[in-house]
Simulated scan of single mutants.
Amino acid sequence: MAEGPVPEARWIETRDGLRLRAALWPEGTRGTVVMFQGRTEYIEKYSDAARHLAERGFAAAALDWQGQGLSTRSQADRRIGHVNDFNDFQTDVDAFLDHCAARRLPRPWHLLGHSMGGAIGLRALLRVLPFERAVFSAPMWGLKMLPQQRILGWTVSALGSSLGLSGRLTPGSGKVADPASQPFEGNLLTSDPEMFAWMKAQIQAHPDLALGGPSIGWLWSALREMHALARAAAPDVPTLTLLGTEEGIVDPDAIHVRMASWPKGALEMVEGARHEVLMEGAATRARLYDRIAAHLDG
């Protein structure tokens, strides 16, 4: 894989005192793409995106959300992915955008949200934050569950949270999107062995970046946030959403329903792609980033 631009890394602080790690790739003349990562992810995983964007003239910015990467983790067991409430991520967003403004990243600003970052990003658009255009990759507007799993998820997460068990690992959380201990065969992330090996090598080289399954509190908050987002009208922001035909983590039906009701939205299906649409083979990535650049240029 080709080397990309070197990021400018900083520690930033939220208004409630949490320390977050942020990275900027500030060189660009066509604007800045602010990248909202998914659950379990970290800045290093977005260096390939930053490289592709830089080649197309865009600056970029990325953040480790609270509870993952090298940002503050509240749990004694740092492998449990936990957040008290999804609204807490909006506190991260505010601190992050303040940092981008202080560093005078080139305008216009655009949003790129993947998976959980798609839920956080949609909420940010509904708050009318300063994004001119948006791109979503397999956004978490629903989780892929059987009907009985969905009922069980709501019941267990609600009951567990009410009993003070929100920080405990969700029972039976199964496969997680952390490739460090997973074989390539049967993985839900990418059909490209090279990109899978690249993600796996990052975790093996820096184990502190790794994250395991979600907490009961994360699940309870995520389910309520996805339900609330589904009831909201589409934001007045031109939006491109990318979804693989082999998606196995988020709910494709929720994405189809949302994009069908988005007047300024377009849904593009990526044949053969899995959850990490932007981490498929080199030819697919190049084509999709060309498509993204064309969308951002209007």
Results as ranks from 00 to 15, higher is better:
Arg107Tyr: 03
Ala294Arg: 15
Gln90Trp: 08
Ser137Ile: 05
Arg291His: 12
Met279Gln: 10
His275Trp: 04
Arg15Asn: 15
Ser157Arg: 01
Asp251Phe: 13
Met35Trp: 02
Pro238Gly: 06
Gly118Phe: 11
Val176Gln: 10
Ala9Val: 14
Arg79Gly: 02
Val83Lys: 06
Phe58Trp: 02
Trp262Ala: 08
Tyr289Glu: 02
Gly17Met: 13
Ser137Ala: 07
Ala23Met: 04
Leu105Ile: 01
Leu188His: 12
Leu70Asp: 11
Ala61Cys: 07
Met199Thr: 09
Leu209Gly: 02
Arg150Ile: 05
Asp208Ser: 15
Gly4Asp: 02
Ala273Val: 06
Ala286Glu: 15
Leu97Ser: 10
Ser137Arg: 01
Thr14Gln: 11
Thr170Ala: 15
Leu296His: 07
Ala9Thr: 15
Glu276Leu: 04
Pro235Tyr: 03
Ala210Phe: 06
His295Met: 04
Gly186Ser: 07
Asn87Val: 14
Asp192Phe: 08
Ala54Asp: 00
Arg285Ile: 04
Thr14Arg: 07
Pro7Lys: 12
Thr155Gln: 12
Leu143Arg: 02
Ser161Thr: 14
Ala61Phe: 07
Asp48Leu: 12
Ala22Leu: 06
Pro108Cys: 05
Ile203Asp: 04
Glu280Val: 01
Pro5Trp: 13
Thr32Ala: 14
Ala293Gly: 03
Trp262Phe: 03
Asn87Tyr: 10
Gln90Val: 13
Thr241Gly: 04
